[in-house]
Design a binder for these strands. Structure first.
Lengths: 268, 268
DNA sequence: GCAAATTTGTTCGTATGTATT
DNA sequence: CAATACATACGAACAAATTTG
């Protein structure tokens, strides 16, 4: 038994999908029918389908059947600094200009504001001791009414006590928080560092994005630490966490002179 | 039956793993033993373990048992341009300086050179018509003797006919190909665009990296298009594809002034 | 080096539950 | 309510990989 039967069946079905014999959205024969066709038990057919499912080639819907997965058109986000606004890509309004330029509708929820103790990554990024109070401003974003990103920015509560009280209002801050902090406190962001990693989604993220609960689709976690000038070099003053489903997003970063046109999604 | 039995069992085991009762590397009880403990059939236990496996919480080894997965210490790659060398991060020797600064040993294979027709993404990135001949320079990279990245750069064959014959030699080009093209052809890279996406690994990639063949660990695909100056704006002249396993790599990009220290891996 | 014991992997059959049409 | 289709669960047998004696 060089290759298990369920793998042979999976391979055959995969070939049919990739050759186009079974186009996206098409319903596969029922497990019963496949069982007869391949002369295997229904359990073995299910193993084959499970193999295809874990590769996101098909998806099963109870009571309906198994369907060839549809390809999602990826959203491209440019991370490099916008030369005009000076805003980092993927932030505030800038996050949407690109999406809207493609004729898709983008909306963001009202920010949700919370205050709690900085923990784990937030402490590490902001370089604050345990127990430090931070303001968390969270937002949910949608494209064409489907969930697209979860974003949360953390600021030390000290910024509020120094006068940046608008950080506590659960509304969009006109012009963006970076500009607001500059006006209010004279705090200038001199640079930022993006950190990108891929990981399985948390449960709440799976729920929000409607990802399958088996964790086979990862999320891209984007951490952006903003720095202000300090005596001994740049000092962090805010950190933003953005979470995007990995299967429908691409990131683009430009260095130096590159074509001005919007970057089109790459073919996977 | 609100929550299926196999999920309850998986949840219980997961809790034991995350609480530390079952530390990384520890062997779980055998399927037989778990079957008795939870009063479920072996198949149900296997379903629970499969659930944990798909989340990379455990890994099973035939003939040995199931073990709590060990956390890999991620490798951090900085993509932004090195201020001193002018080289893009993640390329050539620059790709390794960061790794070696952490006391890890990094080696690259001799480049493998091939010539063939540009296809798909290569055509799209280089903006060349179907049938265009390109030079492909491929390299495998290792950190501490474990496979770390697969990289392939494509150049139009025209660069060779114009005099950049070293592109065809299966050896490292001293100083890097970007510098070589500048010396030889006066071709200056004025900018580049990075494009990042996440996808399941191809079969050859799974083999090379030793990833589980069920595709549950994705790879990060990094495409870098290099541009030279042209009459009507920047024109692409090379494209590099780098593939990294997503579970052990982090990317960092700096904009403006940021702390000079090496970026430490973030906690997931 | 080989044989036995252990452990996971594959496959079948069967029964029942749950979601959708 | 009935029919259809996938989901869960049990039991059993043999295969393949690995360790142990």
């Amino acid at each position: 038994m060089a290759e298990p039967m369920y793998r042979q069946i999976a391979r055959d079905l995969r070939q049919q999908i990739e050759s186009g014999a079974l186009p996206p959205g098409e319903k596969l024969p029922t497990e019963q029918q496949l069982s007869e066709k391949y002369e295997a038990s229904r359990n073995t057919i299910r193993d084959a389908i499970k193999w295809l499912t874990s590769r996101v080639l098909v998806e099963t819907r109870p009571g309906q059947g198994t369907f060839v997965a549809r390809r999602l058109t990826p959203v491209v986000t440019t991370l490099s600094v916008d030369q005009e606004t000076g805003l980092g890509g993927g932030e505030g309004k800038a996050a949407f200009s690109e999406v809207e330029a493609r004729g898709r509708k983008a909306v963001a929820s009202q920010p949700k504001v919370e205050i709690h103790s900085a923990s784990g990554n937030v402490r590490a990024r902001l370089r604050v001791p345990e127990g430090t109070q931070v303001v968390r401003r969270g937002q949910e974003r949608f494209i064409d009414d489907t969930p697209w990103s979860l974003q949360a920015t953390y600021y030390s509560l000290e910024l509020v006590t120094r006068g940046a009280v608008a950080l506590l209002t659960p509304e969009d801050i006109r012009g963006g928080t970076v500009a607001y902090l500059k006006e209010t406190l004279g705090l200038v962001q001199v640079g930022y560092r993006d950190r990108i990693l891929v990981r399985p989604p948390h449960e709440d993220e799976s729920r929000f994005f409607g990802l399958p609960d088996d964790g086979r689709i990862s999320v891209v976690s984007l951490m952006r630490t903003g720095y202000q000038a300090g005596d001994k070099g740049p000092v962090p003053f805010r950190v933003t966490f953005t979470v995007l489903p990995a299967d429908r997003n691409q990131l683009v970063i430009n260095f130096g002179q590159v074509p001005g046109a919007l970057a089109a999604p790459a073919v996977v």
